[in-house]
């Protein structure tokens, strides 16, 4: 009489296996059938929980709870999911009969199907509730043991996902490393500065080390960046104690030699001197 739908009389099935007869097996079956009756009508009928409550004479929260159970049992479908408390409370979620729900409702109405409540399976909620009572009254160890037997999901093991904890940061060692790095850089700069200072008098004929040549090109670049059109250029560098002057000299080519290559300045002469020598 119910057609070929794969319905089962279980109170614990998932939506993937609809349990369209379950509402006949619960103690307050009449209220569920009333809810289904409120939804029966035009195929497109969609009501909010409040509208169903109004039609059945119940309260909205109770109607919503029954509707949601009917959704789980496959009798009712829900249109929209609320994404905020405001929308949820406004009852924008609407419910309607599924094809399965409609067929069962019609068949039940036509044949006065009665199912004894005594045949209903013991729902998990019953033994879980009874167990909760025992757990609440138990000591710590017994409560944990009962939980393990009933649910048994362990606590997560964070180290398994995150790997071994990172070593603690040794601030003193880190500071030493920074100072060492800075010290090394400082020593290299002092060495380059000394070499450049020593080579200043004969710059165009000296082959500079990589560090000194890098310092020279750095000073040249900064001087050129500040040069006025057709004018001389000058830069002073306090950290190295050096100054560099670029003097306009049309027709003059000044080669500068370093381990990394040669730079030739067209139309300039270069003068490098200690900053203190200028004063």
């Amino acid at each position: 009489m119910l057609g070929a739908s794969p319905v089962t009389a279980s109170g614990t099935g998932s939506p993937a296996s609809p349990t369209g007869l379950a509402h006949l097996l619960v103690p307050d079956s009449g209220s569920y059938q009333a809810v289904l009756g409120a939804l029966d009508g035009d195929r497109e009928l969609r009501l909010t929980a409040t509208e169903v409550a109004s039609a059945t004479g119940g309260d909205p929260d109770g109607a919503r709870a029954r509707l949601e159970r009917l959704v789980a049992w496959g009798n009712v479908t829900r249109t929209d999911e609320a994404d905020s408390l405001v929308a949820y409370r406004a009852g924008t979620v609407r419910y309607g009969l599924t094809d399965l729900g409609r067929r069962i409702l019609r068949a039940v109405s036509a044949t006065s199907v009665e199912v004894a409540a005594a045949t209903a399976p013991d729902p998990p909620s019953r033994w879980l509730a009874e167990l909760a009572g025992r757990v609440d009254a138990a000591g710590d160890e017994e409560a944990a043991r009962l939980y393990a037997a009933a649910i048994g999901v362990p606590s997560p093991e964070p180290t398994a996902a995150e790997g071994p904890p990172p070593p603690a940061l040794d601030l003193a060692a880190a500071r030493e490393a920074v100072l060492e790095r800075d010290g090394r850089a400082g020593r290299e700069l002092a060495r380059a500065s000394g070499e450049l200072r020593e080579a200043a008098a004969d710059l165009a004929r000296r082959r500079l080390s990589r560090g000194a040549f890098r310092l020279l090109t750095d000073l040249l670049g900064r001087a050129l960046a500040q040069a006025a059109p057709d004018g001389d250029a000058y830069v002073a560098d306090a950290p190295t104690g050096l100054e560099l002057q670029l003097l306009r000299a049309p027709g003059v080519r000044t080669p500068l030699y370093g381990e990394d290559g040669v730079i030739t300045l067209d139309g300039f002469k270069v003068r490098v001197a200690p900053l203190d020598g200028r004063s």
Binding site: E68, A82, L131
Partner: peptide, 13 residues
């Protein structure tokens, strides 16, 4: 345990 008992029947929201 009580929450696990009631969750299957409360709906998606």
């Amino acid at each position: 345990l009580l929450a696990v008992a009631v969750l299957p029947s409360v709906g998606a929201r």
